[in-house]
Structures are given as C-alpha cells and as structure tokens.
C-alpha cells in the first residue's frame, strides 16, 4: 500500500461549495468541485462531499504532524465558518477524528465535475490488461480479486438478508457500469453444503465482453465483488466463487457460482 501524506477530516455530509463563497481564506479552484485554503505551509482542500484534507506539498507525514497543532486552530476556524453557512455538524468531533488518510479511500463523487465517474472501456481494459505484458499473470489476477473484494465487503454493510445483498451486488455492477447482472440459485449437488449455490449471470462485462478466447475467465474483479460481499455478509471465509462462463472461455456472457465450502 502506498504511503499517504495527508490528514483527513470528515464532516459526514455534503457542504454545498457554492455556499462557502466568501469564507475568509477559502478560494475556488478550477476543474474540480473543491475549494482550497493555505495556512502557512499547510494546504487544506474542502470537497463538496464534506471531506477536508490537510497536507504539506512534497513533504512527509511527520512534518505535517508537527505543523498540525498550529494549523489545527485555522482548520477549526474553517470548520466553524462552514458551520456558520448552515451545515450542521460537530466541529470539535470532526477535528478530533482527523487522521492520516488511507490510500484506499475511494469516495470519488464530485471530483470530476465534467467527466463524472465514467471512463472509456478501452482505457479501462488497457489499465487491466496492459500490465500482463510486464507483470506475472497470477499477481495481476490477485490484485483484481483484492480490489473486487474490497468493494464487495462494502456492499454487505447493513444488509439483512441474502436477497438484499444480491440486489446490492446487481445494482453495484449496473451503477459502476461493470455489467448487467441477474441472480439465480441451484442446489449444491455435491452434498457438501447446506446452502444453495448462488448463480450470478452477468452480461456486458466491462472486463470480458467481446474479448478473445484465452481459455481462462477474465472477470476477476467481479468475482472478487461477489466473494467479498458474501464473506462479509456471512462472516465466513470459506466462500468459493468460480467464474464458470466467460468470454475468455468462449462464452458470450459471464457467470459466477458462489458456494459455501466445508472447512
């Protein structure tokens, strides 16, 4: 994981950047839904989503930690000014909960106001498949599964039953334009499990649709999403997700079978 050199404070709700015009020291920046303030060496960014980031350009986290006690007073002033514009939150709690930002923080809403979250399929596939010419296949597949599992785990939060979870997986795939999913089930004929096999059929997979036959399944990220969601939902690690159909295997759709395996 890459080292991240900034602190993050989360207000927890959209702040409405247009309302923040006139807050002393806070200026608009071009090309992103974000406003910026400079407190000595510490740069502060305020995002539409209510995220506040503090960092020192080209500098390590230690230097930032040393600068934060002084800058913290200014950041508190900024939070109070935001609150004064009608955004209800507890500025003391937000400041106290500030912590070094995690690299896997992926709340990207609003950072690309013109292009939004969509990327071109060619570019996505270059990102996914170009590294295969320079890195081991096994490792790249693991990376994709890990990314998918991280996303899948988030989907399981607060889900009450399997149907709700399956709907969340299908919605995620659709919203992220990764594929059009449908869920079915079948009995586990191996007799090794009391649970049914969940079958996720995915058309228009972003990773596979139209790809050539390579005698292997290509949708490792989606496989990870399903596994991560079920691992987190069932609080079990012995979840097997197999991509049984894929364009890479010669099919014209993709299909994933999820089963609970015996320990």
């Amino acid at each position: 994981m890459m080292d991240v050199h900034c602190y993050q404070y989360l207000i927890g709700k959209d702040v409405g950047l247009e309302k923040l015009d006139g807050v002393p020291g806070l200026t608009k920046v071009d090309g992103a839904k974000v406003m910026q303030a400079q407190f000595g060496s510490v740069t502060v960014l305020v995002f539409e989503t209510g995220e506040v980031r503090a960092f020192i350009r080209s500098s390590g986290i230690e230097k930032l930690k040393n600068a934060l006690p002084a800058a913290g007073v200014k950041i508190m002033g900024l939070l109070q000014a935001i609150k004064a514009k009608g955004v209800e939150f507890d500025e003391n709690a937000v400041l106290a909960a500030g912590k070094p930002m995690a690299f896997d923080y992926l709340a990207v809403k609003g950072v690309r106001p013109e292009l939004e979250e969509v990327v071109n399929l060619d570019a996505l596939r270059e990102l996914v498949y170009a590294p295969y010419s320079i890195m081991p296949e096994f490792q790249l597949e693991r990376n994709a599964v890990q990314g998918g599992e991280n996303e899948g785990r988030k989907l399981a939060q607060g889900k009450q039953d399997k149907e709700e979870l399956n709907s969340a997986i299908v919605k995620y795939l659709r919203d992220e334009k990764l594929g059009i999913g449908k869920v079915g089930s079948k009995a586990d004929e191996s007799g090794q499990s009391q649970y049914e096999i969940q079958v996720f059929t995915v058309h228009e997979s972003a990773f596979a649709a139209g790809m050539p036959v390579v005698n292997k399944a290509l949708c490792n990220f989606i496989r990870g999403v399903v596994r991560g969601a079920y691992v987190a939902f069932m609080e079990l690690e012995n979840i097997e997700v197999k991509e049984s159909h894929c364009w890479g295997l010669g099919d014209t759709y993709c299909e994933f079978e999820m089963r609970v395996t015996p320990m």
Partner: peptide, 24 residues
C-alpha cells in the same frame, strides 16, 4: 486456522490464502 480446500481450484486456494494472510 484449519481449512480444507475441496473441489480444488487455484483461484479458491489463492482466495483463501489471500484472505487469511491479509485480513486475519
């Protein structure tokens, strides 16, 4: 942790190892 990987597949083995090493 004792795990039996039946119906062997490399993916399932790697998923299992990755999960226990990175998360547990």
């Amino acid at each position: 942790v004792m795990v039996t990987v039946e119906n062997f597949s490399w993916e399932h083995l790697a998923d299992t190892l990755q999960a226990y090493i990175t998360r547990h």
